[in-house]
Design a protein around this nucleic acid. Structure first.
Lengths: 193, 193
DNA sequence: GTCTATAGATCGATAGAC
DNA sequence: GTCTATCGATCTATAGAC
């Protein structure tokens, strides 16, 4: 499984890069800070990522996308036991975003002009999340229009919960908000079951 | 009314500064871009804001706080005709954030470490918004615990709607999400009226 | 109070030794 | 493939002419 490593393990630098981008944002993350975060010299970073910061962020986004695809999107799209999939999604997301202490890199990229270079990927991430969640609800017999509304509301609500929890410095608010969304979706599933 | 101008009109530079900070974020906004946005040379900017970028952002936040206090918080805290106040809040917010095309400077400051210098002001802004909205609902006879939940949900939801609308490049999603929150609050008011 | 010029630090990125 | 040294550009902030 690890025999066909394409080149080398720039893969292993991605978690540290992601954390640095999360903490400082794309503009705020300097090569010095990225070097410190990864433990790699600038030369090594440019060896792995010839395109510099932008290529690093691109790789981070691809990595995040892959994690979400496996852990979140596919279980929803698969559509066996919608209620369990919805429950798992909220649990995984709460843990992933550390109850709102951890920023969503993708969401924050959309907020300022520095992220415009990644707008296609940002858009796809949210579009797929909403679409996967709506599909899951539809499998649970929730009417399509309502399913889409609820999915949009939940995905948006998670982003808002991150913003609020960070602003207030209070993870409890994140968990309350997310739990309400979880309940709303499970109620809808029960209503049409 | 305009006779007691304290010093000079650094006030008049604030809208342009705010727009620049909105568009590029705090780190991304350079003095060159702030100079261009305001039409003032760097020397003039430092004359008005000796503390540099940080003092400019502080002034912008104070200015935003003042606007929200007058347009949003006070009508909610005043508490005459809760339903009208809630309706007006969502209308004003939708216009202010330009249906999500416009970023919330305060919310985005909380997302990365560059905003830590302003964390107290960021926290107060959201705390007061939630508290004002909850108070308004309580005046409308919504039980306190539910009022607080609904207020937290609505304020958080607006932030999420901005993130999602920006990410998708779609103001319609902002308006849909905000309308649902508006409806939820008005329904609660009707239920306990 | 406005501007231009520029200092001093730090930025992203590259070169080259090992 | 790793590092250090360093480039030119750009950053914040200041100085000083007007």
């Amino acid at each position: 499984m690890s025999s066909k490593r394409v080149l080398t393990d720039r893969e292993s630098a991605l978690p540290a890069l992601a954390e640095a981008f999360r903490e400082h944002g794309f503009e705020g993350a300097t090569l010095a800070s990225l070097s410190k975060a990864t433990g790699l010299g600038k030369g090594s970073l440019y060896n792995f990522f010839p395109g510099g910061k932008e290529e690093m962020m691109e790789a981070v986004l691809e990595n995040i996308d892959g994690w979400f695809a496996n852990a979140i999107f596919q279980p929803l799209e698969q559509g066996v036991d919608p209620a369990a999939a919805v429950t798992a999604m909220f649990d995984d997301v709460t843990e992933y975003f550390r109850s709102g202490r951890r920023v969503c890199v993708v969401g924050s990229l959309g907020l300022n002009s520095a992220g415009e270079a990644f707008s296609a990927r940002v858009k796809d991430y949210f579009a797929r999340w909403i679409s996967a969640l709506a599909h899951c609800l539809e499998v649970g017999r929730v009417p399509p229009a309502l399913a889409l509304d609820l999915a949009e509301e939940a995905v948006s609500g998670i982003q808002g919960a991150i913003v609020l929890a960070r602003a207030l410095g209070d993870d409890a608010s994140f968990r309350r908000i997310v739990r309400r969304h979880q309940t709303a979706l499970l109620d809808a599933l029960n209503r049409y079951a």
